[in-house]
Design a protein around this nucleic acid. Structure first.
Length: 606
DNA sequence: CTAGGGTTAG
C-alpha cells in the first residue's frame, strides 16, 4: 500500500469529513488504482453505509460498491449489514446471493444480517433457507444466530417454532428470553409473556430481566390491563436501576395510561428531567385516551415551546385528542401543520381525520377525504367511517361503506353488526332481518362479549347474561340495587343499541345483563367503599352500559379511552364515545375504571 | 471492529 493510500485512509477515519471532501476522495479512488485497495474502499464503504455521521447514505454506498471490480468478504459484509437495517432489506438478500455466486465464504455475521433482511420482509421460506445454511455450515450451536432465527420464526409464525428453538438452545441469554417474550406479546399470548418474568427470576436461570425485558413486559401488561403486574415491573426496574432509562420511563407512561392509571402516568412524566419526543408523544396519547383532550393539545404546544420537534407518532396522538374532544378546525390545522415538520401523513393520521370529521357529523366531507387520500384507504379507515354512520344514523352511506369493505375482502363480523346497528337505529327491521340471515348463511361468528375485573390480583371474568359465577345471586341483587338508585338519579336506559325489534320495556330488561354491568356489580359487591374498581372489556362497550357507568360513578369524573362505544359522540357529553372511565360510584364511594382490551381474555391471571 | 430484543390511530 502506497503512501497516498495511507493518507487517504487517515482522512476517511478523521471524524470531521465534509460531503465535498468525500466526493473528492471517491473521485480520486476511482481515477487511480486505489479502487482495488481493499482497506481504503472498505473504510470508505463503512463510513457511507454504516456510520452514524451525516454522510451515511445507503444509495451512495451502493454506487461505490458497484464500482468495486471484485468485492471482498468485508465489503459484502458491510453492504449486507447496511441493507438489512435499511428500508430495502430485499437488496441485502440480493447482495448475499451475489456473494455466494462469487464463491465468497460467508460467516455467522453475514448469515445473521441476511436473516434480519428476510425477517424484516416477513418471508419465512427465505429465512428457512438461511436456517438450512446455518446447519450445513456447522453453526448450529451459535446462540446469537439461533436467537436471530427465533426472531424470524417469531415474526412469521405463531411462536411455536420460536419456542422450539428456544427450548433446544444450550445457552440462553437475556436477549433470547426477550425475543420469546416479544413473540408472545405480538401473538396475543401476553399471559404467557408475563409468566416468563417469574421463570427468569427463579433460582438457576442463567439470565435475568434487563431494561428491554421490562419494556416488553410493560407492553404485555397494557394488553391485559394488568395494572398490578405493571406495578411489579415498575418496582423491579426501580430496584435494578433500570427506571432511570428514558425508554423504560416512556414505557411506564404508556402502560399506566393504557391501564387507566392516568395519575401514575403523569407522575412518571413529571419526574423526568430529560424528555424526548417519545416521552411527549406517550404523554399526549395518554392524555388523549384518558379524556384530557384539551390538555393533550396544550402539551403538544408545550413540547414545541421547549424545543422538542414532534414526529409522526406525536401527531397521531394529538390528532386523536382532537377527535375525542370534537375540535374539528383545530385538528385540521394541526394536520396541515405536519408539512412544516416534513412529515407525510400515514394511514393512522388519515384515520384520525376521518374519525374527527365523522364524529362531528361531517360524513360527506369524511367520505371525500377518504377518496382524496394519497394512501390507499385500508379497511380500518372505512370501518371508522362506518362507525360514524352508526353514530349519525346514516344508513345509505353505511351501505356504501360496506360495499368498499366487501371490495377489499375485509368484512368482519363487527362490520355486519355495525350495519345491523345502523338499520336498527333507524327502525328498518326488514333490513336488520336481511343482515341476520346473510350472517347465518355465511356462518359469521360474532365474538361473545366478556368483561373482567381484577380483585386482589385475581381476574374474574363475566360473559353476557352470565350465571356461572358462584355468587351470581348477590351479583344480580346488587345490580338491581344499583339500577334502582340510578333510576332515582335520572338514568334512562338507552335502547338504540339493541338489535331486536322489541318494545321499550322489554329492551330495558334485555340490556341489564351485559357483561360490563355484571362485572361492575360484582366489583362493587366485593370491594370496600372508596376503593378503585377496574373493569376491562374485550369488545367496545354499548352506549347504555357506558351511560350506566357514567351515571353510577358520577358524570363529573368521566374520562374515557380504549375502543369507542357503538354509538355516541364525544367524551364530554353523556353520549360519550369511549369506554375507559375513571368514575366514582356515588353510592359507596368506589372509583371505577373501565377499559377496553383489544383481545379477548380467558382464564384467570393470578 | 462488526450481530440478536421495542412503535402508534379505529
Amino acid at each position: 500500500m502506497g503512501s497516498s493510500a495511507n493518507s487517504i485512509l487517515s482522512l476517511i477515519k478523521s471524524s470531521s469529513l465534509s460531503k465535498s471532501q468525500l466526493l473528492q476522495i471517491h473521485g480520486h479512488i476511482i481515477c487511480t488504482s486505489l479502487i482495488k485497495e481493499p482497506t481504503v474502499v472498505t473504510s470508505l464503504l463503512s463510513l457511507v453505509a454504516l456510520s452514524s455521521s451525516p454522510l451515511r447514505d445507503i444509495h451512495y454506498a451502493h454506487q461505490i460498491f458497484t464500482q468495486i471490480p471484485k468485492p471482498s468478504f468485508h465489503q459484502y459484509n458491510v453492504m449486507i449489514r447496511a441493507y438489512s437495517q435499511s428500508n430495502s432489506p430485499e437488496k441485502g438478500v440480493l447482495c448475499y446471493n451475489q456473494m455466494r455466486n462469487n464463491r465468497v465464504q460467508t460467516d455467522p455475521f453475514v448469515l445473521s444480517f441476511v436473516l434480519k433482511s428476510w425477517t424484516r420482509m416477513n418471508h419465512l421460506i427465505g429465512g428457512k433457507q438461511i436456517h438450512c445454511r446455518v446447519l450445513s455450515d456447522g453453526f448450529q450451536a451459535d446462540s446469537l444466530l439461533l436467537t436471530s432465527l427465533m426472531g424470524l420464526y417469531a415474526s412469521c409464525g405463531d411462536g411455536t417454532d420460536a419456542r422450539k428453538l428456544f427450548d433446544e438452545m444450550s445457552i440462553r441469554d437475556t436477549v433470547s428470553w426477550n425475543v420469546l417474550i416479544s413473540c408472545y406479546t405480538r401473538n396475543g399470548r401476553s399471559r404467557d409473556a408475563l409468566s416468563l418474568f417469574d421463570v427468569m427470576q427463579k433460582e438457576g436461570c442463567e439470565s435475568e430481566p434487563d431494561d428491554v425485558t421490562c419494556l416488553l413486559l410493560l407492553q404485555a401488561c397494557s394488553h391485559l390491563c394488568a395494572l398490578e403486574f405493571g406495578k411489579r415491573i415498575h418496582k423491579y426496574a426501580d430496584d435494578y436501576g433500570y427506571s432511570d432509562r428514558i425508554k423504560v420511563r416512556n414505557a411506564l407512561i404508556s402502560m399506566y395510561s393504557r391501564c387507566g392509571s392516568f395519575d401514575k402516568a403523569f407522575e412518571v412524566f413529571q419526574g423526568m428531567h430529560d424528555k424526548n419526543v417519545v416521552t411527549w408523544s406517550a404523554m399526549i396519547s395518554g392524555l388523549a385516551m384518558n379524556g384530557h383532550g384539551r390538555d393533550a393539545i396544550e402539551a403538544f404546544r408545550e413540547m414545541k415551546k421547549v424545543g422538542v420537534s414532534p414526529d409522526d407518532q406525536t401527531f397521531t396522538g394529538v390528532l386523536s385528542a382532537c377527535s375525542h374532544v370534537g375540535l374539528v378546525d383545530e385538528g385540521l390545522d394541526i394536520f396541515d401543520s405536519m408539512r412544516e415538520y416534513g412529515i407525510n401523513p400515514n394511514i393512522h393520521h388519515y384515520g384520525c381525520i376521518v374519525d374527527l370529521l365523522g364524529r362531528a357529523g361531517l360524513l360527506d366531507q369524511a367520505y371525500d377525504f377518504i377518496t382524496s387520500m394519497r394512501v390507499k384507504p385500508d379497511s380500518t379507515v372505512w370501518r371508522t367511517l362506518l362507525g360514524a354512520c352508526r353514530i349519525h344514523r346514516h344508513a345509505s352511506l353505511g351501505e356504501h361503506v360496506v360495499s368498499h369493505l366487501i371490495e377489499l375482502k375485509a368484512q368482519e363480523a363487527g362490520d355486519y353488526v355495525l350495519l345491523l346497528n345502523i338499520y336498527a337505529s333507524v327502525g328498518d327491521w326488514e333490513k336488520v332481518a336481511n343482515v341476520r340471515r346473510l350472517m347465518r348463511e355465511k356462518g359469521i361468528q360474532t365474538t361473545p362479549g366478556c368483561s373482567t375485573t381484577e380483585i386482589k390480583g385475581k381476574v374474574h371474568e363475566f360473559a353476557v347474561d352470565d350465571d356461572a359465577h358462584p355468587r351470581k345471586k348477590e351479583i344480580y341483587e346488587m345490580l338491581t340495587d344499583i339500577e334502582k338508585q340510578l333510576k332515582m338519579a335520572g338514568y334512562v336506559s338507552d335502547i338504540t343499541c339493541e338489535l331486536h325489534n322489541l318494545g321499550a320495556a322489554e329492551k330495558g330488561n334485555a340490556l341489564i345483563c351485559h357483561s360490563e354491568k355484571l362485572a361492575i356489580a360484582f366489583a362493587v359487591l366485593v370491594t370496600p367503599p372508596n376503593s378503585k374498581i377496574r373493569v376491562s372489556n374485550n369488545l367496545r362497550i354499548c352506549v347504555d352500559c357506558h351511560n350506566f357507568a357514567k351515571v353510577s360513578f358520577g358524570a363529573q369524573k368521566v374520562t374515557t379511552h380504549g375502543l369507542p362505544v357503538k354509538s355516541g359522540n364525544w367524551d364530554t357529553d353523556l353520549q360519550g364515545s369511549h369506554l375507559f372511565s375513571s368514575l366514582k360510584f356515588s353510592g359507596t364511594g368506589q372509583t371505577a375504571t373501565i377499559s377496553a382490551l383489544k383481545k379477548s381474555m380467558t382464564g384467570v391471571l393470578e
